[in-house]
């Protein structure tokens, strides 16, 4: 079980990963190609059982990093292992071991009742029927899905849909959950439901959670560790206390905003 041992050491192990995009500029005859580094170099280690929040301004490279971690974007440089696998080469195998939610997208079947998407995960991830049924019932109760299980996904509210997506990502009981802006656009009540659910998942099942967010409430409520990404590099990696200690006089928002501004000056 060498992979299991590896997983036990680190859920995510990124060393110097970066991604360049080639952008063509100008009109046809004078078209010039330019290489833009969306992610310069990121080092990140996430141990089993941690909840880590990734913060950073728009365009900092958070989403590109999440895409690399989940295997849908291959890094231009650096070495990366997630749940013991190299994501971009073993994408479909990795998909069985992790759960992913992109807040701005949905993996649910748009025209069909929510139930259809959730029941499909049993075959998709080859979960034994009894185990699936047990977990399905449990998640339905915790996230209060009952009232809209028979509603077509396109008729769900954003908060309902997000809870549906979260359930779909968790029915195969992944050890690592990757969430890209899970609370985007949600009202305070929906946010609170999702936050307390994630905290409970981490506490009771030891699920490792890696999330990106713009909402400092998510961070304060959930995470002990914060990674700030700015201009494609890690500008801060440490505890919430360490972040506060950088500027004891001001609130957390001011500290983070300060990091966004002088991120380029960091090593």
């Amino acid at each position: 079980m060498t992979t299991e041992e590896h997983t036990a050491r680190a859920m995510v192990e990124a060393v110097g990963i970066g991604r360049d995009f080639t952008v063509a500029e100008g009109r046809f005859p004078r078209r010039v190609k330019r290489v833009v580094p969306a992610v310069r170099s990121i080092d990140l280690t996430v141990r089993p059982g941690e909840i880590v929040a990734c913060l950073g301004p728009n365009g900092a490279g958070k989403s590109s990093t999440m895409k690399m971690l989940t295997g849908i974007l291959s890094p231009t440089r650096g070495s990366l292992r997630v749940a013991g696998l190299e994501p971009s080469r073993r994408r479909t195998t990795l998909a069985r071991r992790i759960g992913v939610v992109f807040g701005q997208r949905t993996g649910l079947w748009w025209d069909l009742p929510l139930r259809d998407s959730l029941e499909l995960t049993r075959h998709l991830y080859r979960v034994p029927a009894a185990e699936h049924a047990h977990r399905y019932a449990e998640l339905t109760e915790l996230l209060e899905l009952g009232p809209f299980l028979s509603t077509p996904v396109r008729q769900l509210s954003l908060g309902q849909r997000m809870r549906g997506d979260l359930t779909a990502a968790l029915l195969h009981n992944p050890r690592l959950l990757v969430l890209d802006e899970p609370t985007i656009g949600l009202d305070v009540v929906s946010k609170a439901t999702i936050r307390s659910f994630l905290a409970r998942l981490n506490r009771e099942e030891g699920t490792t959670i890696l999330l990106t967010t713009h909402d400092l409430g998510d961070v304060e409520r959930l995470c002990e560790r914060v990674v700030v990404i700015d201009r494609g590099s890690v500008a801060f990696d440490g505890g919430l206390d360490g972040l506060r200690a950088r500027d004891p006089g001001s609130d957390i928002e001011t500290v983070v905003a300060g990091l966004y501004r002088d991120g380029a000056a960091r090593p």
């Binding site: 295997g71 849908i72 195998t93 998909a95 069985r96 993996g107 998709l124």
Partner: peptide, 10 residues
């Protein structure tokens, strides 16, 4: 949105 399709183990 194809990202979601690529994240399935199929």
């Amino acid at each position: 949105d194809v990202a979601m399709d690529l994240l399935r183990p199929v």
